[in-house]
Design a protein around this nucleic acid. Structure first.
Lengths: 246, 246
DNA sequence: GCCGTGCCAAATGTGCACATTTTTATAAAG
DNA sequence: CTTTATAAAAATGTGCACATTTGGCACGGC
């Protein structure tokens, strides 16, 4: 049977912003979940076929993702999943490290029992995931810890910047495998909370810094691999199915 | 005489990425220079007429600026220059303050004579501009100081984030007038350099923090004003002329 | 006098038909 | 067999013709 899906018949000019959003979210999630490997070419015609929408719609979404620097757009040559260099990855981790130093500096000024309690609860979750060996949850919760820290400041700009950094590093997981076992990270996170409770800025920053350097040191290049996803249809049907299941 | 410029005749299908970039830069510069006031509607047909390009080209640029959050895009209602709330402005300044705390923390680790010398030279420039009463130069150099600080780290992600924050706050100048006289800022900048030279993290951060709180406290709402630029053609011909003059 | 209703002009959104460019396949030459 | 040149095929870029939606304005009723 043909892999072709329902396609909009000619003359379908109805405005449908939800459809844009659906395609955007689908591709974005595929990127964030690492389904789309670095270097993969995202051509317009096959994507239009897969999602059953016009090529212009795909085109618009691709360019939007390009403007957000989530895809690499090359004139006349289309969109590709970016293949970050090792320096790029270090740059993202370093940025996160520097940002968190600032966050912690500000956070010790307004830390209260409620925040400590919330963070402690999160640590329990992390430990639970680690002890039951749920690696996917561990990675997710490990990132969420830092999100909680910055969200405690209640600053939309900072929160967005961190989300941006995390989304970028998640793409990099497919190329540079970071910290396969993040069990140790739980203790380091705990040490940060402990320093916060004691209002000890210097220690909080020092622990955080060590934490990131620890993660960075585990980065390694598995160069030859770079598989560059082949079957786009399979990738996106999986993503769409997962999203529909919720 | 008609205000209409040369318009692309029918059948002009030549690929011209430079034209996209020219329109993008023109609108971006108009935004950054504060020529486009908050709340101004940017409709596609008049812009196409002004720049002498097709409406699709304008459309693409507008959506790109929207994806970068420099313009506010409302479905079916076009693009507007965003009208930030006072909280938005505070959020940007606070983000800058938190970021700089992190930058300074990292910077004391790798500060050397060359850096101190460079910053000192910059301070001299700032003072010169202040003493000769060049307000435009003072504002520009005042922002440049913080750019120099973050650039000293050599991290592309952090540099980009700061540039983003500064570009956003420059738009806000048209609504919330910050620090009409930034002369005092020079001394505060000098104090930061002094703390850096002494490798005193705590003092550097404290001075930086006071500096930002100082600027923030001067923000005030001149609500009724909001003129919302009327004559788009005049705005952009001025921008284009200035850019051509260089 | 003021608010709701229905038209009309203007602006935005979208598919489509090409032009242009890139990539791939094929063939010929060294 | 490798390399280069050429042509065909595929993919991207762009203007255009509409459809749809929004905003303004006059008209009429309360």
């Amino acid at each position: 049977m043909a892999t072709q899906r329902r396609r909009n018949g000619p003359g379908n000019r109805k405005a449908n912003p939800a459809e844009d959003e659906a395609v955007y979210q689908a591709i974005l999630h595929a990127l964030l979940e690492g389904k789309l490997k670095a270097g993969t070419k995202l051509a317009e015609p096959p994507l239009a076929d897969i999602f059953g929408v016009s090529r212009e719609r795909i085109r618009k979404v691709l360019h939007r993702l390009g403007a957000e620097r989530r895809l690499e757009m090359i004139p006349n040559r289309g969109a590709r999943v970016p293949r970050p260099t090792l320096d790029d990855v270090r740059s993202v981790y370093e940025a996160h490290r520097v940002l968190e130093a600032g966050v912690l500096t500000q956070l010790v000024r307004l830390v209260d029992d409620a925040l400590i309690e919330k963070l402690t609860a999160h640590l329990a979750e992390e430990r639970a995931a680690a002890t039951r060996g749920d690696r996917a949850a561990s990675v997710r919760l490990s990132g969420a810890f830092h999100v909680h820290l910055v969200e405690a400041l209640g600053n939309a700009e900072l929160t967005r910047f961190l989300a941006d950094l995390l989304s970028r590093s998640s793409v990099m997981v497919s190329v540079y495998e970071p910290a396969t076992d993040s069990i140790c990270a739980v203790d380091e996170h705990g040490a940060i909370v402990e320093a916060l409770r004691a209002r000890d800025v210097a220690r909080a920053i020092a622990v955080s810094r060590e934490h990131f350097l620890h993660v960075e040191s585990r980065l390694h290049l598995d160069d030859d691999a770079v598989p560059a996803s082949e079957d786009l249809a399979a990738v996106f049907t999986a993503v769409k199915a997962k999203r529909r299941r919720r």
